[in-house]
């Protein structure tokens, strides 16, 4: 039972990051390979204001989230958008976000140093008992947030006018602009929200492992895997993928050791993709002639 519970909780954290992949993918057809660094940016920005006694904790977290969100919007506008202009085969954005990841990682390494720094801003002490398994409140918070935020995003896209616009942009950006909507603004908006989410995950995660430039890297592969397993086109995907990936990798590492945990998770990705290339909840792209 224990690995299952822990797995679900861990999966929640991956799901939060996976949600940021899905969000940028549905609106802009791009993924930000620098998400791992945005996790660290959020953590460091909050750390930088941690000593401001007058600012309540929520404010400090907000600053971290906003820093990541703002940087995300800028990265989209200047380093992603210009590399998406040559149609669906254009994957230059993929290379440019990888480059952004190199630059940010290197910069943070030089500025902050490679070793983790304690970050207590968003720390919840103690653990709760969940079906006989002790789970740290911190991790539970992350998982709960992932769930709440996912449901919130789903409600927004299905029920609101903004959501309608988002769905329209995801299907045909050019025609959306004929409807008086700027796809560029929608893209920047979704990058801001997505990277804000990554920053939030970073702030909460840093309370566990400390803030460091490479803190996001181990999360990156897992959360991309989760997003792909669930299906990049579906906001429900990360929840399903996160649960599956989290439980499987925990059970495997419980049984055979840590290396196998991750390996099992990645093999799951390959297995799912062989079976359903569009992910469990994804939509198959139709060939139109």
């Amino acid at each position: 039972m224990e690995p299952v519970i822990i797995g679900l909780v861990l999966g929640g954290m991956y799901a939060l990051l996976a949600q940021s992949f899905v969000l940028t993918f549905v609106t802009t057809r791009t993924l930000n390979f620098a998400v791992g660094e945005f996790v660290a940016v959020g953590a460091f920005a909050t750390l930088a204001v941690a000593s401001w006694g007058w600012l309540p904790t929520v404010g400090k977290i907000a600053i971290g989230v906003l820093a990541a969100a703002l940087l995300g919007a800028l990265v989209y506008r200047f380093l992603v958008l210009p590399f998406t202009t040559q149609g669906e085969h254009d994957v230059r954005w993929l290379l440019s976000t990888v480059a952004v990841s190199f630059v940010l990682l290197n910069l943070m390494n030089n500025v902050e140093g490679p070793s983790p720094q304690r970050s207590e801003t968003a720390k919840l002490d103690g653990a709760v008992d969940l079906l006989g398994v002790g789970v740290s409140k911190q991790q539970l918070l992350l998982a709960a947030l992932a769930l709440v935020i996912s449901l919130g995003l789903i409600a927004v896209t299905q029920r609101t006018s903004i959501g309608l616009v988002m769905r329209a942009v995801s299907q045909d950006p050019d025609t959306t602009s004929l409807m008086g909507v700027s796809p560029r603004v929608v893209g920047m908006g979704s990058y801001a929200v997505a990277m804000g989410l990554a920053g939030l995950a970073g702030i909460l995660y840093a309370a566990n492992v400390g803030a460091s430039p490479v803190m996001g890297e181990p999360l990156l592969v897992a959360s991309i895997a989760v997003a792909i397993v669930g299906g990049l086109g579906s906001l429900w995907g990360p929840l399903v993928g996160g649960a599956l990936y989290g439980v499987l990798s925990q059970v495997a590492s419980y049984q055979w050791g840590a290396v196998w945990g991750e390996t099992a998770g990645l093999l799951l990705v390959i297995a799912v993709l062989v079976w359903k290339p569009e992910g469990l909840l994804g939509r198959r792209a139709e060939v139109k002639l």
Partner: peptide
Amino acid sequence: MMVPEGRKLFPRLTVGENIALGRRA
């Protein structure tokens, strides 16, 4: 307003939603 060549409806939105986007504009 332009109605582009090939119609260019949003394929996975409903007819009503497509028209709602027009109204929004």
